[in-house]
Design a binder for these strands. Sequence first.
DNA 1: GGAACACGCGCC
DNA 2: AAAGGGCGCGTGTTCC
Length: 451
Amino acid sequence: MSGLTKFLMQEVEMPLVEIVADMEDTGYSVDVQFFNDLRAQLEPKAEKARANIRKVAGDDDFNPNSDKQLADLLYKKLQLKVLARTKKGSPSTTTQTLGWLKSKHEIILEILSLKKLNKIISTYCRIPDQVDADGRLRVEFNQLAAETGRFTSPSVIQTIPKENDEYGLRKGFCAREGFTIVGADFRQQELNVLAQVSGDKNLLKAIKTGLDLHGLAAIKVFGLDCEPNEVEAKYPEKRGQIKAIQFGLIYGKTAHGLAASLGISKDEAQQLIDDYFKQFPAISKFVSTIHRDLLRQGYVDDVFGRRRYFLVVKKKVPRKKYQQMTEQERELLAKIGKAKRAAQNFVIQGASATITKLAMIRCYHHITEKYGNDIKMILTLHDELQFEVRDDLVPGFAAELPGLMCELGLERFAFKLPLAVEVKAGPSWGEMSKWKGNEGSKDGDTNTVKG
DNA sequence: GGAACACGCGCC
DNA sequence: AAAGGGCGCGTGTTCC
């Protein structure tokens, strides 16, 4: 297997094999009635929306699922302004674009509603067909599909709308009689990883305080005069800008992209980034080191030794002005830009994925030794694990989880601070609430364990 | 008729 | 000049 060191192979991926097999075997208990009722409720709605759209299109065979037909309706028949295009140049029909257009014609809302209904009907209302006779849904968790080392799983798991979605789909995934779902997610896992692998003292200090990270960074960058936890209320736009920068670091966002998403000029966005890097110099250095290594080597390694190759960067870029480049040369330049962003993301996402995998191993062995089949791991989702726990064991296990997930022996990989997790429990995936097991400790430090 | 591709959606 | 990483999958379109 390429890109895997001895450590990753022997201490991470191989030990996970039996764990994944067990988790796949166990499955997730599903409320079949919930999804069947939902289908009965949503299908007439979708049918009505479809009929209304066809009336406006003036065509009984009009297919709203076809982006081509949709574009013809919006931009030819209704003469709406083309605000965005697809990669290949067709007029865009995405939810975002429709959102910009929704005041221009009443049918837009109907189209948006139908898109959502179709997705739920075709993806989630089909769950009952896949549920086994014992009422459990068993899916594959693919351990090595993602370049970054993350798990992948089918869309019903990986893209299920969040609990505040109007249809409450996560409520359909529940614990069986006498059991409770207990979940734990690493708090701001990727930002935490970024702080630790870059070694930025200021960001580490911010994490150590356990306060609002974006708020604290905003205070530093803008020199605000308030407490970190007050920033959200007092300077929401400033906090939003910092949040965009900090997530942009994880995704490799450029000044141009930041400008677009914040609605400011490119110069202002660049100034914001410069100001941020001034306060967090080690992060600045970290990012440029990644880019340098990528261009020199054609690959980058994360802190655990996971490697990702980007061989396109080894190709020669002609020293020409953009206007004088051929189509191919421009494409090459774009690909190298993409590789830089992906490499920057890889070292963070990859390390985060390994941490979650190590936590799974730790939890699994503890559970099997101590609880047998009374607690089962049932789900892994990027920065989160879920368990089905016999009701009477919930308090004890919830108290153990932070230690299990955060004491991973990461010191030898440059992790100086303990990670933190938040534990939740409830009757279903959609109805978990924060587990308050650490009465008395101050909010930000709850569930934090020395690692 | 089916494979391969493009697009779009929603999650972390 | 382009301009946010990683996915899975449903649907439509294109091509053989």
